[in-house]
């Protein structure tokens, strides 16, 4: 079960330890220096017996073993990382949770990898409607600012959406407005427009929702792929509230062609009245 406490622990445990050289790298450096010293002066350690005779060989074997262990561990973690990302893409949430908890239990040195893992954990929390937990993750990512610009942008958009769901309207509106004012490439603009539309539907601003419907539709279609279905669902809600049932019906049809109605409602419970009112598309497969 993902709770706020679990999330706090995983954020802390996945944070890389400070210092230029640490852990296995420090041990390997130490062994290498010791080996160098022994090569210059084998009498450095006055040990007698078979241990003394083979001490240098033992050092070399320890060094090689440390390198192999480190490489094996990296490969194992890479496998867990891949497994977690695949599980999130396929919405296999139990599998994703097992993989992500395993992954985030240890420090992750690469900031982008850590950020991507935390975003995956946040997506898992959101899928289970654990919005406080997901909010904690997004806020932590934005505070630490140790991720690439696209990850930071994704965290901002997701945080604004979570704030809208949890009733933190003022903060959400501020963040949405700030994002909307930014000059963004179209794929990122599409995400912000989806968020703005969600805000308008949540706050009952029907006219604003339908005003730029055509422009938004093109943006969603070109850049959101299957997730454009969520945008069409929200447009259906906007048109319905604006008293245009025909357009609402057609947008709902398109939304349910791309995304199943239960998935639409899972993500946006605000669409429940729309689902009751209009017919969903039929799945022939």
């Amino acid at each position: 079960m993902i709770t706020v406490e679990t999330v706090d622990k995983l954020i802390a445990s996945s944070r890389p330890k400070p210092g230029l050289v640490r852990g296995i790298s420090l041990a390997m450096l130490g062994l290498a220096i010791f080996l160098g010293a022994l090569l210059i002066n084998p009498d450095l350690l006055e040990w007698s017996g078979s241990l003394g005779m083979f001490f240098m060989q033992i050092i070399v074997i320890a060094l090689v073993a440390a390198i192999i262990w480190s490489a094996t561990r990296q490969r194992r973690l890479a496998g867990v990382l891949l497994d977690s990302f695949e599980a999130v893409q396929l919405k296999q949430w139990d599998r994703a949770q097992n993989a992500l908890v395993k992954l985030l239990r240890y420090p992750i040195r690469q900031p982008q990898v850590r950020a991507e893992s935390l975003l995956a954990l946040a997506a898992l929390a959101e899928a289970r409607h654990l919005y406080e937990a997901s909010q904690r993750i997004y806020e932590s990512l934005l505070e630490e600012s140790n991720a690439d610009p696209i990850q930071i942008h994704t965290a901002q958009v997701a945080l604004a959406a979570v704030m809208l769901r949890t009733g933190q309207i003022t903060d959400a509106v501020d963040l949405v407005d700030r994002l909307a004012r930014q000059e963004l490439p179209e794929p990122l603009r599409a995400q912000v427009e989806l968020l703005s539309l969600f805000r308008e539907v949540t706050m009952g601003q029907a006219e604003a929702g339908v005003d730029r419907a055509q422009q938004r539709r093109e943006l969603f279609r070109n850049h959101l792929s299957t997730r454009a279905g969520y945008g069409y669902g929200l447009l259906a809600a906007a048109f319905d509230r604006a008293g245009q049932p025909q357009s609402a019906e057609k947008y709902w049809h398109d939304a349910t062609m791309l995304v199943r109605p239960q998935d639409l409602l899972e993500r946006f419970s605000e669409l429940a009245p729309i689902a009751e009112k209009y017919h969903a598309a039929e799945y022939a497969i």
Binding site: R221, M257, E282, Y283, A284, I285
Partner: peptide, 15 residues
């Protein structure tokens, strides 16, 4: 035919 109609309508929604 039903699968064809479904798939082609979906394809048009994408591109």
């Amino acid at each position: 035919r039903p699968q064809y109609n479904f798939l082609i309508e979906r394809a048009r929604l994408y591109y």
